[in-house]
Design a protein around this nucleic acid. Structure first.
Length: 460
RNA sequence: GUGGCCAUAGUUUAACGGUAGAACAGCGGGUUGUGGUCCCGCUAGCGAGGGUUCAACUCCCUCUGGCCACCCCA
């Protein structure tokens, strides 16, 4: 076998192959941690998405889509070999060529890969990109936590100016503010590679001297990933942490200055934040500024709505030229859950202009045509040809909240007329079929004017 | 990956060791071509597999899934 790639299949796959999981239902059912987004939820989704797109437009971020599937090494190199995401949460498998591939667990790595691969260094810097899409992590599902979930995110690559960090935080907050979800932003700086290393040593020394008071998990973390001790929730560990050295007190001059600047800009922009000296993010590529957005509630069962930070070393880690960058990502499912909890009202979509009802076979044919003609002339005409009864059709019209209905039956067919019904008053009149468009257009404009008038009055 | 709670019509739910009721939604009807109210009717269910029992939706086990805590994170 010449030249074939020899990649070891992961342990997981071998186990799976030995004993395939059996489903328990007669009909196909949702995989664990997967979710259908049904039509009745879509209004939240499209609302959030529009907001994100608007934000991108305002701040001149351009949309980018990267593939769901990437080479596994992209994530091990960027997110980090020893992180939970890579260690136990990736959907990884071998493709038919023997290549080790993974479903993306996050997007920064993919975007930086694209940045390098397409020579975006030769564009005006920073390159501002945003995205929206599904991500995958194989962990245990809970409310607001799925194996396939959606994130939107913004990345500014190619600028180390602290104002970039500040503006990204402003943007991120503005999404939650606009929707009406109260959030708090926590912020910290983990410094550059060197600061981080020095601090890690200092911190490890501090913990080692108090090792016997730490919980079991933290003893393990101490060896594997000491900084993770920082967000332990065990009381004893917290007490030890209270006196632990803070990383912000051990930043080198440049990192310190950068962080101070970020905070200054935030103050200037009147952005509320909380300094959290214990905020370390779970991904290896973070440098300097890190921040997280949390819902402002105190029931304990909190989960971050979003987060981000600077990743000045990532481009280099992935084999590109050193390029500073900063970004953030937000979780759509968690946002939608909050919107539901807060009973946030999504502006209702405009109802169609008119509903076309028909009775009898020949009318049905003509109505099919009429709907098309109206639509071509810019009138949004709804219809429902799957039922015969006028009663049913009008109930659909009512449900759609249309102002007018057109009724075309046997009688009208003979007279070459059509009925125009005012759905609010219930009055209706016979009009010449050839004048449908003109008459309808008149009524629509009239009601539009009335509504506008009404709104003006209530505003005053 | 660890521990705990849970699983009844599309949805929210009730009851019982002897084979399931309700509400909402859906569909049909309240005279032949007129809506969002009201009235009547219909459809539809014990997550899957095994065990205990004369008999299980009800008890036990396994699986699947959901939720909660941990872990971690969006």
């Amino acid at each position: 076998m010449p030249k074939s790639k020899v990649t070891k299949p992961s342990v997981k796959i071998e186990e799976k192959a030995a004993e395939p999981k059996k489903r328990s239902s007669k009909h196909p059912q949702l995989l664990r941690g997967m979710k259908d987004i049904l039509p009745e939820s879509q209004k939240y989704w499209s609302y959030v998405r529009k907001l994100v797109e608007q934000l991108a437009e305002d701040y001149t971020y351009e949309m980018i889509d990267t593939p769901i599937l990437e080479e596994t090494s992209l994530f091990t190199r960027s997110v980090g070999e020893n992180t939970d995401i890579v260690e136990k949460e990736m959907f990884s498998f071998e493709d038919k060529s023997g290549m080790n591939v993974s479903m993306r667990p996050e997007n920064t790595a993919g975007i930086v890969r694209a940045y390098i691969e397409h020579g975006m260094l030769d564009r005006p810097q920073p390159v501002r990109l945003f995205y929206w899409g599904p991500f995958f992590r194989y962990d245990r599902p809970q409310a607001g936590r799925y194996r396939q979930f959606h994130q939107f995110g913004f990345e500014a690559i190619g600028d180390n100016n602290p104002i970039i960090d500040a503006q990204l935080i402003v943007m991120c907050q503005s999404i939650y503010n606009t929707i009406g979800i109260p959030v708090v932003t926590q912020i910290n700086s983990v410094g550059c590679k060197k600061c981080r290393k020095d601090y890690e040593q200092l911190f490890t020394d501090y913990l080692s001297s108090r090792k016997k008071f730490l919980c079991e998990d933290c003893k393990r973390r101490l060896i594997k990933n000491p900084l993770r001790v920082l967000d332990c929730k065990v009381k004893e560990c917290k007490e030890i942490l209270a006196d632990a050295p803070h990383i912000v007190d051990h930043l080198d001059e440049e990192c310190k200055e950068h962080f101070v600047k970020v905070l200054e800009y935030l103050d200037e922009a009147d952005i509320a934040y909380q300094l959290n000296p214990f905020l370390v993010r779970g991904l290896d590529y973070y440098t300097r500024t890190t921040f997280e957005i949390w819902p402002e509630k105190d029931d304990g069962s909190q989960s971050a709505m979003g987060g981000g930070g600077r990743y000045d070393d990532l481009t280099e880690m992935l084999g590109g030229r050193p390029t500073p960058a900063c970004g953030f990502a937000g979780g759509v499912e968690r946002l939608v859950i909050s919107m539901r909890e807060k009973e946030i009202v999504i502006p209702a979509p405009e109802p169609p202009d008119v509903f076309v009802a028909q009775l009898g076979e020949s009318a049905k044919k003509k109505a099919l045509r009429l709907v098309e003609d109206l639509r071509a002339k810019g009138i949004r005409a709804a219809s429902n040809f799957s039922k015969e009864g006028l009663k049913y059709q009008l109930s659909v019209a009512a449900r759609l909240r249309v102002k007018f209905s057109l009724i075309l039956g046997q009688k009208e067919m003979l007279d070459k007329t059509i009925l125009l019904r005012d759905m609010e008053g219930g009055s209706q009149e016979v009009i010449d079929y050839n004048k449908v468009y003109v008459e309808l257009k008149n009524r629509l404009e009239k009601t539009k004017a009335i509504i506008q008038n009404r709104n003006n009055h209530t505003e005053e």
